[in-house]
Amino acid sequence: MRNIYLFLLRNSVLILFLILQFVSLYSLFNFNRFHEAALNMVASEIAGAVYRNTDKVESYLSLQSENNSLREQNARLLSLMPSGNILPDTGVTIVSKTIRIDSTSVAGQFNYLPARIISNSVFLQQNYMIIHRGREQGIEPNLAVVAPDGIIGTVVSAGANMSTVMSLLHRQSKVIAVLKKGSGLGEISWDGKDPGLLNLRKIPTTVEVNKGDSVVTSPYSDKFPPGYTIGIVERVEKDQETNTYLLWVRSSVDFNTVQHAFVVKNRLQEEIDQINKTIIRE
């Protein structure tokens, strides 16, 4: 017994080293797998407070370009005003983007909550953003995040006033996407190299794909609003083994400068989840 004590005493530094290594590696690999660590909540609040203040300066410097992009988006939204729409016969047709709240009012299926991006990175293998909105403003994990120009990522954890968003530039990020011209269903991922280029896989070679085709979110995704821009095909390659394409997509969002985002809430999410659950059970 005494020898054990002596051994421990003599190697106390080594043991401390091993313990600290274990703690860091455990939190590293655990975090990546589950995207939810109590630590992360604290971290995003601490780091968030710092970033929030520096963001004030930075946002002032880029007011001009931000104004332009917001003006463009305003123009796009104005063109969508209901005055210009012809209402379909609701007795027969289902309007895919709207649902009935009660018998007299109709609301959009997707609810957009504005949020500022206060911290962002593009150079790591796993890039996250911090947005200045949290649980108290109705943000929950697993909601989609989009910018005016295209999709950005998914909320992975929500603190009280800040949330962490897994960027599209993350090695584990996967988003279902389709070609805008209608055919082909694939998966957007990122290879960790160029922050402007995304990969689109799993589209079968039977579909014709050209350089310059638009890629948008799929109607089958429950998180992302269908048909939201992702990017434009820049390079086409065929994967002979699996008979699918390997496409390089130039992202329509400039991840270096993006500052404004919308968190997208699907009002039907609960229903969709319930249906999914019953399918699995049966």
């Binding site: 290594q21 590293l28 971290a43």
Partner: peptide
């Protein structure tokens, strides 16, 4: 905390 990679930099610093 700032890199949002809990443990990665801690391991190398240790």
């Amino acid at each position: 905390f700032f890199f949002i990679t809990p443990g990665l930099h801690a391991a190398s610093c240790v």
